[in-house]
């Protein structure tokens, strides 16, 4: 998939969504997860999507990541309309452009840290060497450990290393600290901040943890399937300065 990016002023628009809705059929009940989202995400920015449980933030992230398609509306990644893509093209989109980090890490237990990263580098065209990706998350010395031999924080940092090793254009993180205590959570966030800073990867973190919003360039609040507010942080806090 070749990409031509649109420049708006000095900011490059990576994602552009117009009026997206998502309706789930849950038995006989229709659940409106998204009720019309208009949104732009810019290259290299660190965005926190803030919202309570059920606000639609995960649905939005899944649509941006090509895991799901909207019921109506359009999602443009650069100049491509993701909402019209077939499953196989979405797979290629994920493979080439998107890095995912999940709340429960989703590492492959039968593979070591390095191999979990290699899982992604083996199928990408211009990846970081796995060891370099692990060094970026300060796990250079844990490369040969299996998930069962690592703490939750370490596992999540392996997941981040795995997500960034392909040099994705966008890094999508779903509650990356949700299963961690504050101390390890901050270490994980530091890893994300470093990737964003050093590789310039557009990073979207969804969370219900308000404190994390302080480290973002922009904070987008969602409630009941709609954007209820967008804030720009004039000064980003360092992860170490956060507390919750």
């Amino acid at each position: 998939m070749t990409v031509t990016r649109t420049q708006t002023g000095d900011k490059e628009i990576v994602f552009n969504t117009r009026g997206i809705t998502k309706v789930y059929q849950m038995g006989e009940v229709e659940v409106h997860a998204l009720r019309g989202i208009d949104l732009e995400l810019y290259g290299g920015e660190f965005v926190v999507l803030l919202g309570a449980s059920g606000s639609g933030k995960s649905t939005l992230l899944n649509i941006l990541g090509g895991l799901d398609v909207p019921t109506s509306g359009t999602v443009h990644y650069a100049d491509h309309d993701l909402s019209t893509f077939r499953e196989s093209v979405l797979t290629r989109y994920r493979r080439e452009h998107v890095g995912f980090v999940f709340q429960f890490y989703n590492l492959i237990p039968s593979l070591t840290a390095r191999e979990n990263v290699a899982l992604v580098t083996e199928i990408s065209t211009n990846p970081l060497p796995p060891d370099e990706a692990l060094k970026m998350v300060n796990l250079g010395d844990r490369a040969d450990h299996f998930p069962a031999q690592m703490s939750g924080g370490e596992q999540q940092r392996v997941a981040i290393a795995r997500a960034i090793a392909k040099r994705p254009d966008v890094l999508l993180c779903d509650e990356p600290t949700g299963a961690l205590d504050i101390k390890t959570g901050i270490v994980v966030l530091e890893a994300l901040a470093r990737v964003n800073r050093e590789l310039g990867t557009t990073t979207v973190v969804i969370t219900h943890n308000v404190a994390i919003a302080d480290m973002a360039d922009r904070v987008i609040r969602l409630s009941d399937g709609r954007i209820s507010g967008i804030e720009i942080n004039s000064r980003k806090k360092l992860p170490a300065e956060l507390s919750w």
Partner: peptide, 16 residues
């Protein structure tokens, strides 16, 4: 299934 789904999310195709 969990592993396989994770791989799918990471960009692995059905064939893979």
């Amino acid at each position: 299934s969990r592993e396989l789904a994770s791989l799918r999310v990471l960009g692995y195709t059905r064939g893979e």
